[in-house]
Every structure is written in structure tokens, then in C-alpha cells.
Design a protein around this nucleic acid. Structure first.
Lengths: 329, 329
DNA sequence: TTGTAGGCGTTATCAC
DNA sequence: GTGATAACGCCTACAA
């Protein structure tokens, strides 16, 4: 491995001069500088990241932690993060799994964006106490070294539920995420609020998992209990897809007997027949904002928690409720 | 930051003893060892990755480089990689974009898996010459420090084309990937071979991009030129989806007027109506094998290039060709 | 403008 | 079994 020492020797200068030249310091003559640069290139010099990180106590690398690599939301989210990171001179690495948690405390990265169930909140608070910088996307956590960039789950679930109610549906199944999921809990809360306030609306909770299988199981229960048209709010699109798929194997029709709305507006929904109603938000912006916030708190700036706004996407997967047709004629 | 120096001071021993104890060396008494460990825990000691990497000249981190974070293939692939990495004591980080290339030469990672157009082959060979270990998934490259784990593109494209021919199709559009894509070129070669060998089969190449938009554009051209049933081999599923989608807006029917087959068997295809015929392979295994190979060459083992086998998945998106019905009736 | 020297936190080679 | 001590490659006062 060729180091600045080798360059110094070959150039007949000291290693500090080499270091200055390499870092573009104005303290060194243009002449010596260009000579050093030429030799560096000639020797194929590449700086050593570990040494630089050790000395400077920063790696200029940000990490994002995901529960797993699957999941349709991640592509755009990561794209948004990368864009901001790169523009600010940071590199982005994506990690998953308990083993990789060490990247943060061991200071391999300068900060972390968390969208990862495998981190407990206690763990994150511990890191924050040790002065590590964190942005959380999947929970609420109050600490000077932690910033939140959360989806407006309440608004989204409210929009979705109100949409179902407005369409005249009186019986609403809600398929939740896995136990303990922050998004699921928040969305569920909003559903209850809206449904309980509405006239004569019944809601039934079905435990899901935010995966296709959860939707499939829910479909089976709903079909079993079927007595007449019902609405289903799947707390994410992936379950909605699983559900629609399973329903498609029966005589019941989506948007006719079973009215379905999801959450996330993942790309897949655009290709469903009928088009899935869902809640949309900019994943790209979510990622971009998360990175921005992280870089700011690393720079020592004070920042406020942020919220990502959501909108309703209508779709033929939700039709009019029977009673609504009668009532509204 | 608490270092082994702090522990040494508090324990009244030298830093080398601390280091030994922390690394579980048998050279140190159980008594001193446990005392040191206790103090380390008490002080919340966390080793510094940069220092360790600098000294040991290895980070125990492997990197995988992707052209972008989107793309349906990646989830399972990365899952397979992570599984093997973790089992072997390595961490996996996912990177994308030109800026992140530095991770390899700067020795932030011990090796790289490449599925990334932003690396030129020259660049990779340069790294390999400098003794960096690489596994390529998207090109052929011969170098002692580089191993290939490639899809059996030839077999896949042959299966797909033969399937279309066997079904009696005489006119086959082939929608390619972006210019220079290794997979696209290999698949195209196999198509030509099969089609030219077949009796009375005409093939027409349409330049694509491996993205939905490429399939959409191809659909437009095909519709414009439509005179009677034709087959289309989209060199990946994503384009096939774009194509089917655009076709759905016309009077033509997939599997009836336009017979489509894809490549990759991405999850989305399972939810298409009609089911897309395609070429399947285990993405999980692909990733697992890539990691295995990388870890082996890092360990100095000699390894052979590997190949991932593929199979044909039939689907209703391909029906019988008209002439075939007449002939074979 | 350039050189000297100390140190970032570890590991590892020596002595003792 | 334990303790100095010298690296690893780089940065950065401070001195010259």
C-alpha cells in the first residue's frame, strides 16, 4: 500500500507537505503541490479511509438501517437519501440486521437513519446519549441527538377511513401491521376515532403483519364471515395486494363486494385490476428530508421534528356502499 | 470517547493487557480478564472500528454495489448475501452511485460484489490489480482477484425463445436492455441463435432499457405495426409489465393477439392478469453464492466461476400461435 | 512555505 | 502473565 510517506520520500519533501498538498491547502507552493500531485497519481496513491476516519473522528458516511431489504417503499426512499447525502459530501450505506448495528457505536458512520424494528428505542437512546446522531422514521423519540421525520399517519388513516365512510360503508375491517409497529398503532388510532364518530359504522380489527401473507389471512377470515358487502382498510398496500389476490380466487369481487383501500401507494398498486385506492406520500422526499435533518444535527444545527404529508388516491377498489346508494339515491 | 487506555488506567494494568483481555486471549489470567471486562462494561467501552481496521488492515465488511436502489430483483438477492456474510462474521453494506466507489480502494470494505453499471470494467481491473477482491454479477472479467457469478442468460433466453417457437409463433419482437448491458447482449445472442435455426421465424429487435418505459415504447411500436398475432420476448420482466400495461389500453389482448414472455420472474409478475410467462432463477441463491465466493477469494482460496441456473415459467401471457393451431390442429 | 512531532485507538512484537 | 513500545496512515499545531 502506498502512503503519503512514500510520496514524501519520492518527492523529497516531508509528509506534512504532502498532506497539505493532497488536501488542497494554500499553504504550499503551486509548484511543490503540483509536483506532489503528479507523484501521487504516478504511484496510484489512494488515501486510507480508516486512517483518515481515525484521525478526523468522522467518516463522512451516513448509514440507513432497514428491517429487511425487501419492501417496495425502499427504492425511492433510498434514492432521496442518496441524493441529499452525495450533494453534501456524504456517502450513504444501507445496512440491515442486528449485526450491523455496531456501525454506529463503533463510529464507522457519522450518523444513522433508522427504519428498522431490530433497534429498540432504549438502544437508540443509549447511542444518542453517547453523542451519536440519529434520525428516526419509525417511532417517536425525544432526545437532543435524535430527530424524527414521520409520516402523517393520523392524517392518512383519517383520509382513508373517511373515504370509506363517505362511500357509505358501514362495516369496516382494519388489517393492522405487526404488533408494536408504530405506523400501525398510529393509523389504527385514527381509524377508531373516525369510525367511532361516524354514524352506525362498525369496525373490526384483524391482526396483520404488513406483508402479503397478512392480507391473505385477512381475506380468508373476511370471506368466512361474509354476509354482504364490506370495506377493508389494509394498513399498508402490501397486505391489500395479498388480500385482493386471495379474494380474486373467490366469487367475491373487489370494489363490488369487498371494498379495499391500502396505504403507501407502492408502485405495484398502479398495475392492479381494479386500481387500488390508497394513501400516497413522497417517499423520495421522505428520504431526502431524513438525510437533510441528519446532516444538520451532525453539523450541530438545532432542528425541529418533521412530518411527511399524505394524500388520498381514489381507486376502483372502493365502490359505493349499498346503503349509501339507497340513502343518497 | 473511552478507549482501552482509560480501561487500563482504571484497572491498573497496561493497555496491552486490556487488549488481550478484550480479545479473549488465553495469555491473561481469568481474574485480571474478568476485572478488565467488568470495567470495560462499566465505562461503556466500545471499540473503535477505524483504529481496528487501520491496524488489522481489514474491516470485516463486504460491500455490494447496485446501479440504483430500485429494482425488484434486489430484495432477495441482498437477503441471500446478508445471510452468508453474517454467518461468516462479515457485515454487509449496500452502496450505489459513483461517489461510493471509493469504499473499495480506500479499504473501507474488504471486498465488493458488483451489479452496477457505473463501474467500468477497466476500473474494476485496476482495483483487482491493487489486490482488492471482487465478485462480478453483471459482466465477464478474468483476473485472479475477480470471480464471476453469472446468470445462465444463454439458457434462459434459449428456453424463452424455444417456448415461443414451439407455441407456433413466427414473428417475434425482442425488446432489449440498455446498450452495453451484458445480460441483454447475452440474451439477445441466444435469441438469434434459436430464432435463426427455427423454420420460418422472423425476429425484430426493439431497443429497450430494462425499465417499464422501455416496454411501453415497444408496445407502441408493436401496436403501430400490428397486422396479426405476434410474440414478444421482453429481455426482462419490468419491460414486459410496461408493455402489457400499454397493450391493455388498446383492443389487443395479451396471450391472444400479443404473446409476451419476460425474464427474471420478479414478484410482480405473479399478480399480473394474465400471468406472465418468464424465466425464473433463485435470486437468493445468486446472492448467497456471490458472498461465498467473495469470502473465499478474500481468504485466499482459489475458486471457479459460477453459474446460476434458470427455468421456464409458463404463463397465460403466451398462447398458441395461429399457424400452429392450423398446423398441429 | 516547509518540516518536526505528537497523537487518533488498536494490535502485536518484544522483553521482563 | 504482563508491560513497554512500535507501528498502522493520516492530520495538524507548532516550530523553523
Amino acid at each position: 500500500m502506498v502512503s503519503i510517506k512514500d510520496i514524501a520520500k519520492k518527492a523529497g519533501v516531508s509528509i506534512s507537505t504532502v498532506s497539505y498538498a493532497l488536501n488542497g491547502s494554500s499553504k504550499v507552493t503551486d509548484e511543490t503541490s503540483s509536483k506532489i500531485l503528479a507523484i501521487a497519481r504516478e504511484l496510484n496513491y489512494i488515501p486510507n479511509a480508516a486512517a483518515r476516519t481515525l484521525k478526523k473522528r468522522e467518516s463522512k458516511i451516513l448509514g440507513v438501517f432497514l428491517t429487511d431489504f425487501k419492501g417496495d417503499v425502499y427504492g425511492e426512499l433510498l434514492g432521496g437519501m442518496k441524493e441529499v447525502c452525495n450533494a453534501q459530501g456524504y456517502d450513504l450505506i444501507v445496512c440491515s440486521g442486528k449485526q450491523s448495528h455496531r456501525m454506529l457505536p463503533e463510529r464507522m458512520i457519522d450518523g444513522a437513519v433508522i427504519l428498522d424494528q431490530t433497534f429498540t428505542s432504549e438502544e437508540l437512546l443509549t447511542y444518542a446519549d453517547r453523542n451519536h446522531k440519529i434520525v428516526v422514521l419509525d417511532r417517536e423519540l425525544d432526545h437532543p441527538n435524535i430527530n424524527q421525520v414521520l409520516l402523517d399517519n393520523k392524517a392518512g388513516a383519517t383520509l382513508a377511513t373517511e373515504y370509506l365512510v363517505e362511500q357509505g360503508h358501514k362495516k369496516i375491517y382494519v388489517v393492522t401491521g405487526p404488533a408494536g409497529s408504530f405506523d400501525s398503532i398510529q393509523r389504527m388510532k385514527a381509524v377508531k376515532l373516525v369510525a367511532d364518530r361516524a354514524d352506525d359504522v362498525e369496525w373490526i380489527e384483524i391482526a396483520g403483519d404488513f406483508k402479503k401473507s397478512g392480507g391473505e389471512h385477512a381475506a380468508e377470515q373476511i370471506v368466512r364471515e361474509y354476509k354482504g358487502p364490506v370495506a377493508v382498510f389494509c394498513l399498508n398496500d402490501e397486505m391489500a395486494i395479498g388480500l385482493c389476490n386471495r379474494i380474486a380466487e373467490t366469487d367475491l369481487r373487489i370494489g363490488d363486494h369487498i371494498h379495499v383501500i391500502g396505504f403507501d401507494n407502492i408502485e405495484l398498486t398502479r398495475y392492479m385490476q381494479p386500481r387500488l385506492a390508497t394513501i400516497d406520500y413522497s417517499k423520495h422526499k421522505w428520504g431526502a428530508l431524513a438525510s437533510e435533518q441528519l446532516i444538520k444535527i451532525i453539523a450541530g444545527e438545532k432542528v425541529e421534528h418533521e412530518r411527511i404529508y399524505v394524500t388520498l388516491v381514489e381507486g376502483e377498489s372502493v365502490g359505493k356502499g349499498v346503503k349509501s346508494i339507497v340513502t343518497r339515491g
